[in-house]
Design a protein around this nucleic acid. Structure first.
Lengths: 325, 325
DNA sequence: GTGACCTGAGAAAAGCTTTTACCAATCTCT
DNA sequence: AGAGATTGGTAAAAGCTTTTCTCAGGTCAC
């Protein structure tokens, strides 16, 4: 630093880091002068020596940011206290682009990498398994012996269906996304388990229009109609609510509708606002961040898949009362 | 590098950088061995010397990511070719957090900072005016003598209203957000200019429910109804479309509705999909990225506000034909 | 054959910080 | 008072690149 503080370069360092031996008045003086001139140590130089850059990389292929943003917020939230900054790298399922970003991050000596995606059962289009920095997977499929975090979709779905049962619904239908999604199968499994097989599962796509169409199909069928819809995501739920309204069916009086994801922009703007399942992605990001930090510091972390519980967000599309917490 | 390539450390450097004098067969051999052992120079050490970290910081207070994500995508897209990585720092209108992030970035010797927000007429809660690194503002209010990029909302609004006029609409109403937003006033100004003053401007909030309510108000009034609605954003437009449907008014046959923002998740999922104005945020990010890079490299950049043109996205909520491009 | 020149490569410094080793001066105890 | 311990501080090395300087050996010309 400005050894212009009339002291040697090493004394300055020790003063600012509260290490070494020196007179307390010297230490104080150095600190004061450092503060005055606004001295801040160069993290590059420090990193060169300490082998820690206090930097991690976040790799994502989720362009919408639906999943990445909350995860990122959690990571950043957890790591900012430790002085760690985050490189965000959006690779759009482009292996070449991904490799460029990974190389750039490695050159910059990131302390670790968090890989995140938009789907639990897909890998990012780049191999991170043999890097010399720790890698943690969040909301995307990890590799053998890696640490990965994911939401517990089964528990989330159970939460939703149990809620519907609890408020007295019995004929619960499930409208959801494409069956090749792992989450879809998990959620459907929990649905079957809790609700029994009274109603079929309608697989489709993740859009409002599918939710709309699914309701058309259900209401076109003869016989008793469902008194509740458990939807695979909020967009489907929203389409369903719209369709119900057009049929003159009242939500939540006649039919309860529950979504999944708690995507505020969809869930809160639906009329009525959607009761839905929140995957706690921010918390997921927080844990992923702390984990990659632990690995970077050489602390041991058990490999494996960690499932984080979902939380039920009660709004008005189901009726019933919010649980007293 | 592994001078284990049987050559001195300086020769290795010169070989890999194609500088200095040396026998071509030595150069080739070093390069080959470097490639074999997967050597990559340490960017920290290089940065220490060259005063360039090939790293920039992106500061944002937009938690939804509605504006930040496209901007970020543009920046990243523009800079990845130059080997620059981006620190994403989400500060949630928290001055203390913002300062922490800025300090962390400066410590890490970022080559520049891009500030971005969710509102053109608001500053970030941190002062970036006297940093020793270049700062560029994108979609947020800049400081004196700074470089800032913003969308041309006036031109965008003009585009929208002119389109409505072109397809034969005459009684065009404007439902928009809070009047204290600069963009709202600019858009309303352009609306008045192009449409004349036949219909009032309805100021409200940026939500679907306001769009819904505004239509109620309009249709409750005696006299001729509007034949077109220019909405301040896509959410308002969506609410309006829903309300019109409930009134039995057909979109686009009876009334054309046009939005603003081109927020895919809203605009494309509305029935019918919204014709809307795109602010070209990705391009805005791209230019901001290239500009901060230019400043970092010492190239001169004229200070001032750069307005980028918006683009009309024609879907089905207005009728009319897509312009032949 | 010898001085001028060129070539290929290595030595060293710089960039900034932290850490270890070290030295001179003061203190302590008998 | 003098040996040994303590104190307050400095010098130097290490971490990894790049750049500039230097040098040994060879080539060319006269």
């Amino acid at each position: 630093m400005a050894a212009a503080a009339a002291v040697s370069i090493s004394t300055a360092s020790k003063a600012l880091n509260d290490t070494g031996r020196m007179g307390s008045e010297t230490r104080e003086r150095v600190k004061r002068i450092a503060a005055e001139i606004g001295y801040r140590p160069n993290a590059l130089a420090r990193g060169l020596l300490s082998k820690r850059s206090f930097t991690i990389g976040l790799l994502t292929n989720d362009t919408y940011g639906r999943f990445t943003l909350p995860v990122m917020a959690g990571i950043s939230d957890a790591l900012v206290d430790h002085g760690v900054s985050v490189f965000l790298c959006a690779i759009e399922d482009d292996p070449a682009l991904a490799q460029i970003h990974v190389d750039a991050m490695l050159d910059k000596q990131v302390d670790g990498i968090i890989a995140t995606g938009k789907r639990l059962d897909r890998r990012l289009p780049v191999d991170l398994s043999n890097l010399h920095v720790p890698v943690v997977y969040a909301f995307t499929e990890g590799t053998q012996n890696s640490v990965s975090f994911r939401s517990d979709d089964e528990q989330g779905a159970r939460l939703a269906v149990e809620w519907l049962v609890k408020i007295g619904r019995r004929r619960i239908a499930h409208i959801t996304g494409p069956e090749d999604f792992f989450s879809v199968r998990e959620r459907a499994g929990a649905y079957h388990e809790v609700a029994g097989h009274r109603e079929p599962v309608l697989y489709g796509v993740w859009s409002e229009s599918w939710g709309h169409e699914a309701v058309e199909q259900l209401w076109k069928r003869p016989g008793e109609k469902p008194d509740a819809l458990f939807c695979g995501n909020d967009q489907i739920a929203r389409g369903a609510v719209d369709a119900l309204r057009e049929h003159g069916v009242k939500v939540p009086q006649d039919v309860s509708v529950i979504g999944f994801d708690n995507w505020e922009i969809v869930a809160a703007q639906t009329r009525p606002p959607l009761t839905t399942v929140d995957m706690e992605l921010k918390e997921l990001g927080r844990q992923a961040g702390l984990t990659v930090l632990a690995l970077a510091e050489g602390r041991p972390v058990e490999p494996g898949v960690r499932k984080l519980p979902c939380r039920l967000i009660v709004r008005q599309s189901c009726g019933g009362k919010a649980p007293t917490e």
